[in-house]
Structure formats: C-alpha cells, structure tokens
Nucleic acid binder design. Structure first.
Lengths: 135, 135
DNA sequence: ATAAACTAATACTTATAGGTATTATTTTAT
DNA sequence: ATAAAATAATACCTATAAGTATTAGTTTAT
C-alpha cells in the first residue's frame, strides 16, 4: 500500500500548490483541480496549515499560500506530519528491534528498497518538482 | 505504511517457515515463535494454504509445510495474494494513468524508489533468505 | 471406540482510516 | 451595516482492516 490515502492527498495538494505557487488558491479551486472529496480536502488544508506548511487567509477573497519556502519542505516532513514516518523506518517484519548481529530474516533483502525510498523522501523538496518538470 | 499488517504477518510466517523448512510446523508452534494473535494467525495459515503456498495436514500430528519449492515463491507473489500489488504499481499521486508525455508532478522523483522496491519483491524468493542469512 | 491434538470455515466484534454534516468565524465588496 | 464568500472547529457517520469466538471436521495414539 506504500503510503496512506491521506498522505497521497496531502502530496497531491502540496505538489499542485508548488507548481502554482505564484497564486493564492482557494479550497474550491483545489477541489476542482484535484480529485479529493471537498470536505475532507478542507480538513486536510486546515491540518496542513496547523502543521505550518501553508498559510490560510480567511474571508471573502481568502485561500492558501505556502508559509515557508519550497526549498525547505522535504517530502519526508510532509508524510511524517500526516501519518508518521516511523513505520517506514522500522523493521519490515515488525520486530521492535532488528539487532545488527542477529537481524530479521528479511533484513538484507529489504534494506536497499527501504533506503532508496527514505533517502528520496529525505533529500527531495517541493522546489525540486519544478526542476523535475523540465526533464 | 509500506505494507499492511496482514502482509507483514504473512511474511513473518513464511520467512520463519522457510528458515525451518525441514520440519513440519503446527499453528501452536508458529504462534509461540511469531508475535501474531493466535486465531488471526490460524486464519492466515488457512489463507496461505488456499493460495497454494503451504500445505496443511489435519489431525493430531498435523501442521504446515511448503506446498511448492522455496525457489519458486517470490515476495511479490506473497504480498499480491494477501493485499494485492496493484496499489504499489500505480501512480503515487493516485492518477488513474500517468501518461509519458505529461506525467504527474512526482513521477520522476518517485520512479527510482518504486522500481527498487518492486524489483526487489519480484526478483527475490524465499530461498534467497538462507543465502542472505549467511552474509 | 474415543479422547486428544490438530486444521477449516464462518460469523461476529473492534479499531482505525476515510469521509460527511453542522455550525462558527473572518473578511471584503456593496 | 450586511450579505456573500471564504476558512475553522468539532462532532458524527461509514468502510475497511484487524482481531475474536464458535462450531465443525480430521487424524492418530491409546
């Protein structure tokens, strides 16, 4: 399942906003562009505000803009705030610890994909999207 | 979240069985060794039997052994039978399609970790565990 | 024969993630 | 002033995953 649906939504919201970061975007516009149930989307927007990623302006001509520079927002931080990153860091077989002298059966096999995954999340920011877009 | 808890359990069961494939193992023994709720474990064992991974012997001295050679059981197949692999294959942002000429915002970034993950699952079998154990 | 030690099947309960509804609050155009 | 158009907060509902209970069926040692 990789990431939760809520994480997927959060990424969809923030990547869309990142690619349109010049303009303030209202929940209604985001709803029309992304395929996320409106009320759930609004709740996520509030969550993302509270987490400090975006900033809300209330009132008639309100909407959302980023509260921080895109270069400072790593994907790892987004997923961490939505569903936590711990379950990704831990042992695949769910062992509380996976000691180096007696690792779990799948340790060696899982190591590489896990590292690639976490490294990507931890080294990529929303600002990198615009770069990637030009490849 | 990477994989579901049920997938995690299935892997725990089959990896343990793979490392002890000489002996027939009863549900009770597996319950004592692995940290899985007994009744749930038994249901999973029945599922894994139906899926053809293992073979059950009923009755007093019953238990489970592999129904197929370890070399033929890829991790991808296990996870596929438990929770399906489709959600892993698809677009991270949940786009129904991610066309090559206009891929989703995260396409380039996600590509590598996704491939590493799927490749590992699709090229590693339960037989590889014993090898890995000797590293 | 029969009791012990197993697996099989199915129905039910609980916890969690995802989604909805309602009401309150803020801002701005008029 | 006030109505319109936004966000905020909180409570509620629903679907799914995880876990439990019950009952049935099978085999073997005695």
């Amino acid at each position: 399942m990789f990431i939760s649906k809520t994480s997927e939504y959060a990424l969809r919201i923030l990547t869309y906003m990142a690619l349109n970061s010049e303009t303030q975007l209202s929940a209604t516009i985001l709803f029309e562009e992304l395929r996320i149930p409106k009320r759930y989307l609004m709740r996520l927007l509030t969550d993302l505000s509270k987490s400090g990623f975006i900033q809300a302006t209330r009132g008639r001509s309100g909407g959302y803009v980023f509260a921080r520079p895109l270069e400072s927002i790593f994907f790892s931080e987004i997923i961490d705030s939505v569903e936590g990153l711990l379950s990704y860091e831990g042992c695949v077989l769910g062992n509380p610890v996976c000691p180096i002298d007696k690792p779990c059966a799948m340790h060696h096999i899982w190591d590489k994909p896990k590292l690639t995954f976490l490294q990507t999340l931890k080294t990529t920011t929303l600002a990198d999207l615009k770069e990637a877009d030009n490849i």
